[in-house]
Amino acid sequence: MQTNKPTIIAVTGASASGKSLFAQTIYDELLPELGPGGISIIKEDSYYKSQSHLSMEDRVKTNYDHPSAFEHSLLTEHLSALSSGDSVDIPTYCYKTHTRLEETLHLSSTSIILVEGILLFSNEELRNKFDIKIYIDTPLDICLVRRISRDTVERSRSIESITQQYLTTVRPMYHQYIEPNKPFADVVVTRGGKNRMAIEMLKAKIRQIMQRK
């Protein structure tokens, strides 16, 4: 039975687990083959709530690893719209100012939609939107090293602020909201975002799905 309904694939795991690299690699390697109408990628980080009403001091205090930091209802709404063939305007989030920008990203529905983020499985309504659920299982010590390397370069943060946030929110929230939801995954991937066997297996699955559409 052929269907034009998008197949939505979630890629989740701890912060700096390699989930973004995994999803981006799938997207980059299949885009030339499937074309812009064939595959797209959405980042959960885009749906951090607007904090324009807060001072910078208060924005910094936000627990960005708690489900309440995200507007999951809007992401769920957007995935429903894309599933119906409609287009959506995805928010743009700035890590340096800790709030949304005025610009949005217009996204049309595609046959394959990749969604990556840390808390995709924490919301039942959102979780039910995913046809395939992938969990990137990476040891936390490796995640911390990667997070320090990333945030000092890409987000202009100090090592002290990164480690403090890791100890007070990132690690506790992982144990409370991310790791407990691993059983919802259809596939658990080890060795982070560079697991070529897992990447090739998902690419093969996507090709199989495309043949049925």
Rank of each mutant, 00 (worst) to 15 (best):
E154H: 13
I142S: 06
H72D: 01
R196G: 08
Q165D: 10
Y64D: 04
A185C: 10
G117R: 00
S87N: 07
T190S: 14
E103C: 04
D45T: 07
K96I: 12
T110H: 07
Y27K: 08
G13R: 05
I142A: 01
E71W: 07
I42Q: 09
A81W: 03
I8Y: 12
M56P: 00
H175A: 07
N128K: 14
M197P: 01
I206K: 01
F184C: 12
P32I: 04
L202Y: 07
G18W: 08
D65Q: 01
R155Q: 00
K49G: 03
L105S: 10
D186I: 05
R100L: 12
A23P: 03
L126A: 10
K182E: 06
Q208S: 14
S84L: 13
D137L: 10
K203R: 13
K129Q: 15
D65L: 01
E179H: 13
S20F: 01
V115S: 04
R150H: 08
I142V: 13
C143V: 07
D86Q: 10
T163M: 14
S158V: 01
R59H: 03
L107G: 02
M197C: 05
S17N: 09
S87Y: 10
S108L: 10
G18A: 04
I90N: 01
T3L: 04
A81F: 04
T97H: 08
C143A: 10
Y27A: 03
K213S: 14
D45K: 05
R157E: 12
I162Y: 06
S68I: 09
G117T: 00
S109Y: 09
L126P: 07
N123Y: 11
E29H: 13
A198H: 07
R147C: 13
D151W: 06
L30C: 09
Q2T: 10
R207N: 15
K43P: 03
I90G: 01
E124P: 02
V115C: 13
S40K: 04
K213T: 11
G37V: 03
F184P: 00
T163E: 11
L30Y: 07
I134N: 07
E160T: 09
Y177Q: 02
E200R: 06
S156N: 14
I42P: 06
F130Y: 08
I134R: 08
R191V: 12
H175R: 10
Y47K: 05
K49Q: 13
I132L: 15
H98S: 05
L54H: 07
F22T: 02
Y174A: 05
A204H: 13
I9G: 05
L34S: 08
S52E: 13
V170G: 02
L79G: 11
E77A: 12
E71G: 11
E33D: 12
T110K: 11
V187W: 14
N4A: 12
E102Y: 05
S20M: 11
R171I: 13
K133L: 05
K203Y: 09
N128Q: 14
I206E: 03
S15G: 07
L31M: 02
H175G: 04
R191E: 15
L144C: 08
R171E: 15
D28I: 01
S158Q: 00
S161L: 03
I8M: 11
G192S: 09
E160L: 10
K96W: 02
R157K: 14
M1E: 11
F121M: 12
S46Q: 11
E33T: 13
I148L: 15
R157C: 00
I90H: 00
S87V: 02
H53T: 11
I9S: 02
L75R: 03
Y93G: 04
P139L: 06
S40P: 02
L101Y: 04
